[in-house]
Structures are given as structure tokens and as C-alpha cells.
């Protein structure tokens, strides 16, 4: 309760100055209300425009990203389908059936021939070599046989 009575004690000790609320004031500042309002409107407008523009850009980028996603997805789907189609066309049974339809006949038993002499690539020894002969790997073999 002492806090409540303090002002009373203070008022009793010092006599109130009947003009204490009066003081000299500066000349009132002229406020350009219209300019201030315009600036604020401009700032607020710019902020709103910026936010909307950023949002629009983000939305545009998002739509583009989504379109690209769809495009990629479609391309992947097409690729997977093409892989399956190619594999189906390569099916040995289908090729055989198509060949028979075209009039081809199954091949006979595989045949092979044997050479008496190996080719140089297989380790054949060079028997003779004419001076100035080129290094054609088949030449030595041909020279011998001739």
C-alpha cells in the first residue's frame, strides 16, 4: 500500500506548480501526408507485386517441371514398350516362322573343310620370302604354294 500513498506524500512535500504543464513548444512540422501515403502505397504495391510475381514465377516453373516430368515419364514408357517390342520381334520362334512363310528352308547339317596348312595367323611358318616382298601375312603361304 506504500506505493499507492507515495504520490500523496510527494504532493504534500512540494507545492504543485499551477503552470507546470505549460512549456514552450517548437513550431509544428509540416507533414506531407499525401506524399507519405503515396510512398506507402508504392511500397505496399511493390511488395504485393513482388510476392505475386515470385509466386507466379514459381508456379510457372512448377508447371514446366511437371510438364517435363510427364514428358520424361512418357518417354520412359515408350522406351520400355519399344524394348519389349524389339525383344518380341527378335524371338527366334517368330523369326523361324517368318522365314518359313517367306519360303526359306531349314539349313542342312553344318559342314566344314580342313586345310592342310595353317594360316600364318594360326602360327604357320614362313617358308620362303622374296626380297622386297610386302609384309602381307598371306603372301608367304601363297609364295610357297606357287
Amino acid at each position: 500500500m506504500s506505493a499507492v500513498t507515495a504520490p500523496l506524500r510527494r504532493s504534500r512535500e512540494t507545492a504543485p506548480d499551477p503552470r507546470r504543464h505549460l512549456h514552450v513548444v517548437d513550431e509544428p512540422v509540416i507533414r506531407h501526408t499525401l506524399a507519405y501515403a503515396l510512398v506507402m502505397i508504392a511500397v505496399v504495391g511493390a511488395s504485393v507485386f513482388g510476392a505475386v510475381a515470385l509466386n507466379a514465377l514459381a508456379a510457372g516453373a512448377s508447371v514446366e517441371a511437371r510438364a517435363l516430368d510427364a514428358h520424361v515419364s512418357d518417354a520412359e514408357r515408350t522406351y520400355a514398350q519399344l524394348v519389349a517390342d524389339v525383344a518380341s520381334l527378335e524371338d527366334p520362334a517368330r523369326i523361324r516362322e517368318t522365314a518359313l512363310e517367306l519360303g526359306l528352308v531349314p539349313s542342312g547339317p553344318a559342314r566344314f573343310i580342313t586345310l592342310e596348312r595353317n594360316l600364318p595367323a594360326d602360327g604357320a611358318v614362313v617358308a620362303t620370302e622374296r626380297p622386297g616382298a610386302t609384309q602381307d601375312p598371306l603372301k608367304p603361304l601363297l609364295s610357297v604354294e606357287r
Binding site: A80, Q81, A87
Partner: peptide
């Protein structure tokens, strides 16, 4: 590398 099984959409 010939495909025996694959997936399509």
C-alpha cells in the same frame, strides 16, 4: 543381353 522378361506401363 537379349530380353527374356521386362515391364511396360
Amino acid at each position: 543381353g537379349d530380353v527374356l522378361a521386362t515391364s511396360v506401363q
